[in-house]
Design a protein around this nucleic acid. Structure first.
Lengths: 251, 251
DNA sequence: GCACGGCCTGACGTCGCGTCAGGGTCAAGC
DNA sequence: GCTTGACCCTGACGCGACGTCAGGCCGTGC
């Protein structure tokens, strides 16, 4: 088979075959009298293996080393590829889970980023926005409640809520900077204030829910970033304070 | 947050942040008096989204266009990413299936590539090779039988088997070139000869099994390549002939 | 016999950064 | 207050894995 046929069969371009030849990854086992590259079935087999490894993220040099290893037979390659593919599936599934978590996060913690909610008033219809989310993710009580309440909010309400939130975050950052321990009474008071803001503005947020939210601040990168952007260490501090406060309420 | 902190938090390099700034994918929302880039929480959010899209294979320019689309809200991005990730998982699972299929193919059709089996005698121990395959894939009767029989073969046997196989393939290619229809009696005779070679040298291959093997010649890229390398169109021709012959035997 | 598609070999362009070079910045310790 | 070392800046060049011509040879159908 010549380059064009191989290209048609495998989906790679002719240029790619030239490239692989030049770098020694896949040199056709023969040439015609006029210099045309002639690929044998074994060449195609090697190409196939190479493409799988490439797809798996190896550099072409690494692929060449892998395929040229005389201690590894074809079946061993297949087994390795099998393993690597399963690894990747697992990784992707973790990413799927992360995206789902972030979608949930957006509903559980709308109050954390009022800016974004606020931007909605610029050039978008908030009702439509709510509808979209609801269609897919509006299946928790907290979110439903939050949607119902915030539906009535006007620009002034949002401004007030944002101001309240920003002020609280500022005071928390201040406490952190002055060395207030996150499990001290002062810190717990700030956490309690946080909980009441949520309950007042978004949805009923009993201490248990609040504690779960607190854990998200350190477990979910997105929340961590939100607080760390204000002050380094703040995410952990708030998380600890919120959970300490929940424990105090329970005890 | 400045570049170093963002880099530490997200895992990208400082250089990457510089790059994204320059190409306009992610320009920090502020600069310090001394020119240090200052990233806000919103910037981090955008970075996160960008990284997911990048991971999904979009070019940075495409990512920028996606994220700059004013008609798409954050949740829409998450939903799209969710969908694309699931697509990729599905694709990878198909690849896993393909690799598994090829592993099976190797055992069902050892006779197709006697060269490979043959090469084993150069610098490798065939017994060990067999063991490895068996450990993972030796769970079908055909393979077990094939292994038992071929274990006793010596170099001369392999040479004879290869010669017989090559001769048959050559005659099939000749028939194809002379315009012999794959469902003609002549073609079916060649197919029958193929079936008897397998039965004689490897494992019992009744017409039904042979028909299944025939389908693989067009369905499995690897087999297709093996025959197409001899003559274009041969894979399809052999596949049809084998299945026609199986139908004849059954009828 | 010639036209047209396919093949060849350079050689330069592109994308997504890595990797210095040369120089300003900032917090800590002396 | 001054130095030291870690961190930041802006070029600028390099690299991997090809894409994309340019200029020329090959092969075959009318």
């Amino acid at each position: 088979m010549n380059v064009g046929e191989v290209a048609a069969l495998t989906g790679v371009t002719v240029r790619t075959l030239h490239h692989y030849d030049r770098i020694g990854l896949l040199s056709p086992s023969g040439r015609s009298a006029s210099g045309y590259r002639q690929y044998s079935a074994a060449d195609l087999d090697r190409l196939h293996q190479a493409l799988v490894y490439r797809e798996l993220g190896f550099s072409l040099e690494e692929v060449a080393t892998l395929l040229d290893d005389p201690d590894v037979d074809p079946v061993e390659h297949l087994r390795r590829q099998h393993r690597l593919l399963l690894d990747r599936v697992a990784r992707d599934q973790r990413m799927v889970a992360a995206v789902e978590k972030e979608m949930e996060a957006r509903q559980m913690a709308i109050h954390l980023t009022p800016e974004e909610r606020f931007e909605v008033f610029g050039d978008r219809d908030p009702a439509q926005y709510g509808e979209e989310v609801e269609a897919r993710w509006g299946d928790t009580e907290a979110y439903a409640q939050s949607t119902r309440r915030t539906a009535a909010y006007g620009k002034d309400d949002w401004l007030r809520i944002k101001a309240e939130g920003d002020d609280l975050v500022r005071r928390m950052a201040e406490a952190l900077r002055s060395g207030v321990a996150p499990d001290s009474a002062d810190a717990m008071d700030l956490a309690e204030e946080h909980r009441q803001q949520i309950t007042a503005n978004f949805y009923d947020c009993p201490p248990e829910i609040h504690a779960a939210l607190g854990r998200m601040y350190v477990e979910d990168e997105r929340f961590t970033a939100t607080y760390e952007a204000v002050a380094p260490g703040l995410a952990q501090w708030v998380s600890t304070a919120v959970q300490a406060n929940a424990a105090r309420s329970a005890g």
